[in-house]
Simulated assay, not measured.
Amino acid sequence: MIPERISDHMRMLQQTREWLHQHGCSVESFSVFMCRPMVVVSRPPIELVKTAQHICERDKNGTRSVWVASFNGCRIIWR
């Protein structure tokens, strides 16, 4: 079960990276988790901006904004 899940997540990640590249977006980093892959980008395509959720991260040093959108089973985030 786990090898199949990892294979599915890697396939989703590769398809998402290709889609982002086709839309002029470069991937800064990515992670593969058990739930779903996560991709970090610097500037998202407009298609993702329209559907993104805004999240505020707070810690002792202050606050910063993070936006999260989903595509092809992957979470795509940017700050």
Rank of each mutant, 00 (worst) to 15 (best):
C25D: 02
R43V: 13
P3Y: 06
N61F: 14
V32F: 10
R36P: 07
S65N: 15
W67P: 00
R79N: 14
E28R: 13
V68L: 12
I76T: 05
K50W: 01
E57S: 06
S26W: 09
R17I: 15
V39W: 02
W67N: 03
P37C: 03
R64T: 03
V66G: 05
W19N: 10
R11M: 07
E57K: 13
I46S: 06
V68I: 12
R36V: 05
C25I: 04
V32C: 06
I46L: 01
E4Q: 03
S29D: 09
I55Y: 09
I46R: 01
I46E: 04
I6R: 03
S26Q: 07
T51N: 03
H23Y: 14
N72D: 15
V40N: 15
P44G: 11
L48Q: 02
V41K: 02
F33E: 09
R64I: 06
N72M: 14
M10R: 09
V66E: 00
S29T: 02
F30W: 14
R58L: 11
I2Q: 03
A52T: 14
W19F: 14
I77C: 12
S42A: 12
W67I: 01
S26R: 09
F33R: 09
C74N: 00
W78N: 08
M38S: 14
R79A: 10
N61R: 12
E18W: 11
K50N: 05
M1G: 04
R11Y: 06
V32S: 11
V41S: 10
L48T: 00
M12H: 11
R5D: 04
D8M: 01
F30E: 07
G62I: 02
E4R: 00
Q22F: 08
H23R: 14
H9D: 00
F71C: 08
P3L: 05
S65F: 15
K50P: 06
I46V: 05
I46C: 00
I77Q: 13
I76W: 08
I77T: 09
L48H: 03
M1V: 11
R17H: 13
V66M: 08
S42E: 09
G62M: 02
E57P: 00
H9N: 01
E4K: 00
R11D: 07
I76L: 13
R64Q: 01
V66N: 08
V40P: 07
V49T: 06
I76E: 02
Q14D: 08
S42Q: 12
R64M: 10
Q14F: 05
W78L: 01
S7A: 02
M38V: 15
G24C: 07
W78T: 06
V49D: 13
A52L: 07
W19C: 10
G24R: 10
S70E: 15
G73S: 02
P3V: 08
H21N: 12
R43S: 15
R75K: 06
